[in-house]
Simulated scan of single mutants.
Amino acid sequence: MTGARRLLLLGGTGEARRLATRLGSPDPAGTERIEIVYSLAGRVREPALPPSCQIRIGGFGGAAGLADYLRAERIDAVVDATHPFAATMTTHAAQAARATGVPLLVLRRSSWREQPGDDWRRVPSLAGAVALLDRFVLPGPRPHSDPAPRVFLTTGRTDLALFAGLHRPWFLARSVEPPTGPVPPRLTVILDRGPFDVAGETALLRRHRVDVLVTKNSGGTMTAAKLAAARDLGLPVVMVDRPPLPPGVAAVDDVDAAVAWVAPPWPR
């Protein structure tokens, strides 16, 4: 092959930025020069961006639009390093890869695993979390007089609308940017960006008298401290399981393995 190979990196995570930085360094893993197109959905106004990449912001227009883009831009391979819950994007990437014959790798950090002392209530989806919270009853004495559960909701601002119909619980939500659209009627929002530590998360849960934590099983270290804080305080955690990957898709869980996959020859 002559000239630089072109890699479409579907990003937006810390792993995506680290991979882009590694691949943009001189001679990563013995590869020839790689032109990286770093693609973001555009949901955050000021995203953290890697150096030495062509940046693309916005959607592709579904699987067919992504397939057209791969052909038009002469993309040689795709790495999907989007959020573990970006199921629609991953499905579209798998469909576009099959349609064009362009090799695809999914980079997903490992899931969190339940530890001794944890009290996880696992649900298969956000809809399952909504249903569980609607009837949630905490055992034992309450640290406050509110008869409804006080919920720390950390599933992301775009998911708040799913909980807007719940009038009984009180919600504390944290996001990088203010939420838009419908939100629960009893809601307090904190604007903040990780990483967070256990001491800070413990203080936050105590200050707001939180009864239950709701989170997606995103994995990683940026926001894992809330799980340790909930464990230390004996709080239950409603844990939303990850959506499954499309069948037949190659996947790795660390940046080193993704760099090795990019090393020539790329799979076909």
Rank of each mutant, 00 (worst) to 15 (best):
R43H: 13
T188K: 09
D146I: 12
L10E: 01
D80K: 09
R150M: 01
G30H: 09
L104V: 11
F136L: 08
G11Y: 00
T21N: 06
R157A: 13
A148M: 08
T91V: 02
R5E: 15
L205R: 00
A148T: 07
A96E: 11
V189N: 03
I57G: 01
P178M: 03
M89G: 05
G59W: 07
V198D: 05
P84A: 12
E177Y: 07
E201V: 08
D76M: 11
W120V: 07
A67L: 13
V240S: 12
T221M: 02
T21A: 15
L19V: 04
D118E: 05
P139W: 09
T158M: 14
G12V: 07
R74S: 15
A230T: 02
D211A: 00
V102F: 11
M1D: 13
G117S: 08
A263N: 05
P143R: 11
A257I: 07
R98V: 04
A148D: 12
R121Y: 06
Q95M: 14
T13A: 03
A86V: 07
V259A: 00
L132G: 05
L19Q: 01
A29G: 10
V151I: 00
R121Q: 07
L19C: 08
K216G: 05
T13P: 04
R98W: 11
R6V: 14
A67N: 11
G65S: 09
R122N: 14
L133N: 03
L166D: 06
G42P: 01
V210D: 04
L9R: 08
R207Y: 13
V37K: 08
R207L: 13
P47G: 05
A161H: 08
I57M: 10
V240T: 08
E73M: 15
F171H: 02
M222W: 14
A72K: 14
F85M: 10
G101R: 11
D197E: 00
L105P: 04
Q115N: 10
V123E: 12
A225R: 04
V210A: 01
A16S: 10
P179Y: 01
Q95W: 05
A161P: 02
A86H: 07
A164R: 03
A81V: 09
A20N: 04
R207K: 15
T158S: 14
D197A: 03
Y69D: 12
G156A: 08
R174G: 04
L162A: 14
I55S: 02
R109P: 04
L10D: 02
L132F: 00
A16M: 06
L23G: 09
V130F: 01
P244Y: 06
P147I: 14
R18A: 12
P195C: 01
N217M: 10
D119V: 12
R135T: 15
G24H: 03
D197I: 05
F136R: 01
H92D: 14
L245H: 15
K226D: 04
P246L: 13
E32A: 15
G140Y: 01
A203P: 09
D232T: 13
H167S: 15
Q95A: 15
T88I: 07
P247W: 00
G234M: 00
L191I: 12
P28D: 04
E46A: 13
L153S: 03
T82D: 04
L166W: 06
V176Y: 03
Y69H: 15
A64F: 06
D253S: 15
V249G: 12
G194Q: 01
T91C: 14
R113D: 13
A94P: 08
A41K: 06
V214S: 01
